[in-house]
Structure formats: C-alpha cells, structure tokens
C-alpha cells in the first residue's frame, strides 16, 4: 500500500518535472519563467537585497535624484524607491497569483456545473453572469472596497466579480466536448455523471484552465495596480500602484523620471512574464495552436524551390517503363 502511494507520488513528481522542462524548452516559456523568476526572487529576498527599510524616514534626504546610495532616488520622505519596488513586488505577486487561482477555480467549477448539471443550475449561473457582465466592474469594486481596505478583501472582491469570464469560457468548452462522440460513448457505457466529469471532461478542460490561470494572474496584477493607484489599496502594505500615486504628486515637478518609470517597468516585466508563460502553455497543451513558419531554404526564392520540386515530378516514358518491366520479370534488377 505504502509502496503504491510512493510510486504514485514519484510518477506525479516526474510528470510535473517533465512539464516544467517542456515550458523551459519553449522560447516564450523560457522568457516568461526567467522574468517571473526574477520578480519572485526579488520579492522573497527584498530584505537582503536592500539595506533600507520601508519606514526609514529621512526627510532631509527627500526627493533625491538617483545616486549610488539610492539607485532610483528617494521619495518625499526620503524612503528609497528601489526598496519600495522590491517590497511592492510581494503584494503584487500575492494578489495576482491568489486571485488568478481563485478566479480560475471558482469560474471552472461554476462553468462545469452550469454546463453539466441540469437546467436549473445553468439558468441560475447564467443569470448571475449576465448581471455581472452588465455591472461596471471598476465602480462596483470602488464601492465595495469601502467594506474593508485589507488586501485580502481585494482578492475576495476580484474573485467575486472576475469569475464570470472564466466560467463562460469553460462552459462553452465543456458544452463542445459533451457533443463529442467519446462522451456519448462513455454515457452509453453507463459511466456516472461524476465519473465522466472527472475522467473525461476535467482532463479536456484542464489545459484551458492552466493557461487561463497564468493569463488572469497577469490581468489582476494590472487591475491591482490600478485600484491601489486610485487609493483603494491596503494602506498598510507597499504596492506599485501606490508608488505611482506618490510619484504623480512629487516626481513630475522635480523631474525624477526613475520614480515614474521604474514601477511601471516592474509591472510590465511581471505581467509580460506571466503572459508569456500563458502563451507558452497554450502552445504546449494545444499543439494545433503552433503555427510553423514556412520552411525557407537559404538564398533560394520559393519560386525557384517550387521549380526544383516540379522537375522531380516527371514521369518516365512508356519505353523506359517497358524495359524496366522486362528487367524485373527476368529478375536481373537484383544486383
């Protein structure tokens, strides 16, 4: 028993390892993993990477230009901008990744349920989706974030509002899979609903979900930056959006370009990285997506290459063919 379990764990680990290797082999995936990896390491080792603290007020040194001590300068209170960005990565990653996972999980569950478990559940879920699609999301979030300003609240609100896109996509996918003959065959063979769901439908939508997670992580990071920019973020933690608010107040007039550019670059790198991973997953899991570029022989125009292939197509003449036939009949072709 124990041995079986360990074997299973081993094969699962090996499967995951192979999968990661596949991502690394894909050029987009490699780029994405490197970019996200840098940000993750920066977030984890923020206290090691910077000698400054987030609450190290040093007003005398405020609004300093980038220098050797402060690579990106300091803000109004003399706090190092680079330090703020490093710590800001933490909240951005936490919110982006948890929301991405939660949204995918909730959206997938509701999407599958709406497609597979009867008309009542479908009607209820589709109506909720219709309402959510009409409500302007940002204003609703602004109103709801008055509930509590903790970043956990932000994750909850994002999840509550953001799942409908995923649910619609999953529902459409499940519906199209259910029309496939192999699902019908499984039903005819007497497979129970939950068996078919876990054995057949889940694997078929899983690639969509993995990809969706990566892409929604990217989307929610941008949304988080926007919300904290309009002042709805958690006041107790540093975030990239917040750095930009402070920058708009002071950096513009004093021409501190690094203060404005660096947080934006940080957002771009992280979001771009996640998106690249998403696209790589799409290519790996859905091979039809991969479009090979037409092979091009060096220095030969396609017309010339086609000409060469045309030449290969010539038929032999009847006389040659007759000779060949005679040869074969005598058996003399064997050398």
């Amino acid at each position: 028993m124990m041995k079986k379990l360990t074997n299973q764990i081993f094969s699962a680990v090996r499967g995951i390892g192979k999968f990661i290797l596949k991502i690394l082999k894909n050029p987009k995936g490699r780029l994405g993993v490197i970019l996200v990896g840098i940000v993750v390491l920066a977030a984890i080792f923020a206290p090691v990477l910077t000698p400054y603290e987030l609450d190290a007020y040093d007003v005398a040194n405020g609004l300093a230009k980038p220098s050797r001590e402060h690579l990106l300068g300091t803000d109004k209170n003399g706090i190092d901008i680079l330090t703020q960005i490093l710590y800001g990565a933490r909240i951005s990653l936490i919110i982006g990744i948890t929301t991405g996972l939660c949204v995918t999980l909730l959206g997938a569950t509701l999407g599958i349920v709406s497609a597979y478990f009867g008309k009542v559940s479908a009607a209820v879920i589709l109506n909720i989706i219709n309402v959510l699609l009409v409500i302007p999301t940002t204003p609703l979030m602004m109103i709801m974030s008055n509930l509590s300003s903790s970043y956990l609240m932000m994750i909850a609100i994002f999840t509550l509002i953001g799942w409908c896109g995923t649910a619609r996509m999953v529902r459409a996918q499940v519906l199209s899979i259910m029309n496939m003959n192999y699902i019908r065959a499984a039903e005819l063979a007497g497979g129970s609903k939950s068996y078919i769901m876990f054995r057949h439908i889940m694997p078929a939508v899983s690639h969509l979900l993995i990809m969706n997670t990566a892409l929604s992580c990217a989307g929610f990071m941008i949304a988080e930056a926007g919300l904290s920019f309009i002042g709805l973020g958690d006041p107790s933690v540093m975030s990239w959006g917040k750095i930009l608010v402070a920058a708009q107040e002071s950096a513009f007039t004093s021409g501190l370009w690094a203060w404005v550019l660096a947080p934006g670059a940080a957002i771009f790198i992280t979001v771009f990285g996640f998106m690249q991973i998403g696209y790589a997953l799409e290519e790996i899991l859905n091979p039809r997506m991969k479009r090979k570029k037409a092979a091009r022989v060096k220095n030969v125009s396609p017309e010339a290459a086609a000409e060469a292939v045309f030449a290969e197509m010539a038929d032999i003449s009847e006389e040659e063919a007759d000779m060949l036939k005679a040869e074969f009949e005598k058996g003399s072709h064997v050398k």
Binding site: I222, A225, G226, Q248, V260, P263, I267, M275
Partner: peptide
C-alpha cells in the same frame, strides 16, 4: 496588453505637460 494604460498616461503627462 502588459502595460497598464494609466501608467502610459502618467508617463505621457510627465513628458508632454511637465518636461
């Protein structure tokens, strides 16, 4: 798609209205 448009607005504001 990877750049928040509000950041683009900030940068252009700084460039075209301040600098």
């Amino acid at each position: 798609t990877a750049i928040p448009s509000f950041w683009l607005a900030l940068v252009s504001l700084m460039l075209f209205a301040f600098t």
